[in-house]
Design a binder for these strands. Structure first.
Lengths: 329, 329
DNA sequence: TTGTAGGCGTTATCAA
DNA sequence: TTGATAACGCCTACAA
């Protein structure tokens, strides 16, 4: 158990009475090792509680088998599903995932990306909008997951916000609403969702729009819906660019004594855990982060295998999840 | 920019016209390097976009300067604050933080802990309840953050659940409630919170209790409060062992046409982001995860410095956050 | 099938 | 203040 210094491959070799190369072969599951030796080595490994040093492995080996994942913020829950998808695609293929948000280890490394480059990761996944102009060497395979802002040489896998906006429109129109509202903030995603929404509505209904510049916060949602209703009191259904703003809308509506969905239907976007709670029960658009993660992982794998690959942009079809905040007119 | 192979310390040395040792000294900010040489080296580093290989550094060096953080589940948002505290204590002291949840990289490594041991981390932080009997060598400094289940040789830094329960009691009693309810699940934390709650209530009020065996889910909260009210219709204030169950309680109360807080006050525990939203506005107990993280980090640092230290158990005083789900009787 | 030897990119220990 | 040179723990030809 608690050895002072961790055992090395030398210790294992000595104890098993073989050479270090033989141990190395066993470690790599090489088939050309006699059953007898293999067992002896395995036994020694067990007894010594040996664990190969990742540092030594990646130094000596040709590849680090490590993928760096840069999250924008651990608070944005969508990364959880993204990671699930990434794991499926990557770690099952023998790659180790290392995650960091924008601030993890800053100070030691100038940025998480710097840290990953020091680790000699074989590839990088940037989740969300790559905020700063991150200086990533062209030689590092890179894929942007969930962000639209595309870097020339990077693959992009993202939710089809336009399509999602369209789904929202169809849902509300299908429920018989003809006075629609859209609230959003100043982000590329918000703009896309709005545009898809309006395009799908077409001439079938009126759409009142309130865009509040700045962050998509709950408070912004409250203020946006307040303004929307002040200007257009006849609106019966509101589509928020994201769940957080939708939540703000819900509280503002409650404050005004308007019932949801009896008086006003509300829907969001992202299908966050929040929306899925029974208490909130928000109709939303699932951006299918698991698929995005899987797609990003597969794409990264392909790019690692062939660095010369042209950058592609994959859009993942979202999915509407109807809950209790939307109802027929 | 986009070099094929990353530059090595040799490249830097050659370009700066010095030995590798000199470069190494500059890297380590050694004061005994002439200004002239230092600048030449720095310039070469810049021009070559050189970055020391962490693998080589930790192989050759005496310490890895890496701390492993094992999270129970990325979905439990409390780790975000915990990380903030850990960063303050650890990464500012030159330690690199690597985080993993229970499932990250399983398959490659048997468990995240195995992975960390392979990385030769200098210390380990286990966040939450260490579920399985994780086999951690006694030589690895270890601290449990936020969990009560203590391992003999590990330090523990956790929220004082008993005290928090007491605060909940004082709050509700102070509001004039005399028919109290407690709902919880089968966890050590829940039990502690209940016990603190009941102790603080003493003879000042009646406490009806419903414990549902199993996980602390929203649904469990709904069912628990339903049972509680069926058995004790006169209860005017409910203290849930955690925010998630409190949320379940809120939706059940709404379903029964009971207003919060006019008819029934509700409070939770953990002060999750959910509770802090305007829409939910749940009165809760803040378990001060940032402090727990900081404390855990400091403790780990001390233990790394002196492995012989006796294990300690630190309890962090929680804090009540009053919002709109509780009101005077 | 197994062993020998060299090298991976650093740090660390001595000399100079 | 600087520079050789030996580790560090493992992989990978190459040889046996």
């Amino acid at each position: 158990m608690g050895a002072g210094k961790p055992a090395t491959i030398y210790d294992v070799a000595a104890r098993a009475g073989v050479s270090k190369s033989l141990v190395s072969l066993v470690l790599q599951r090489s088939p050309r090792v006699s059953q007898q030796r293999r067992e002896a080595v395995l036994k020694a490994i067990q007894e010594l509680d040996y664990r190969p040093s990742t540092a030594a492995v990646s130094l000596a080996g040709t590849r680090s088998r490590t993928i760096g994942v840069v999250l924008d913020d651990f608070r944005n829950q969508w990364f959880v599903d993204l990671l699930t998808g990434l794991r499926e695609a990557l770690q099952d293929q023998g790659h180790r995932l290392v995650v960091a948000d924008r601030f993890l280890n800053t100070g030691l490394d100038a940025s998480p990306v710097e840290g990953f480059l020091s680790m000699r990761v074989e590839g990088l996944v940037i989740a969300g909008e790559p905020d700063t102009d991150l200086a990533i060497p062209a030689s590092t395979p890179l894929v942007i997951a969930g962000g639209r802002l595309s870097i020339p040489r990077a693959d992009t896998v993202a939710n089809d916000d336009r399509a999602g906006g369209g789904m929202a429109a169809e849902h509300l129109l299908g429920l018989g609403h003809v006075r629609l509202g859209f609230i959003g903030a100043s982000s590329a995603a918000s703009a896309e969702r709005r545009s898809g929404f309006e395009a799908a509505v077409g001439a079938a209904a009126d759409v009142a729009v309130t865009i509040l510049p700045g962050e998509a916060t709950e408070d912004a949602g409250s203020r946006a819906v307040a303004q929307l209703l002040d200007d257009h009191p006849d609106v019966t259904a509101v589509f928020a660019a994201n769940d957080v703003m939708a939540l703000g809308a819900l509280s503002e509506l409650a404050a005004r004594g308007l019932r949801v969905p009896e008086d006003v239907s509300v829907m969001g976007y992202d299908d966050t855990p929040l929306a899925a709670t029974r208490y909130v029960g928000l109709t939303s658009i699932d951006d299918r982060s698991v698929e995005i993660g899987r797609g990003a992982g597969e794409r990264l794998l392909a790019r690692i295998a062939d660095p010369g690959l042209a950058a592609t942009e994959v859009l993942v079809e979202p999915r509407l999840v109807a809950r209790r905040t939307t109802a027929a007119r």
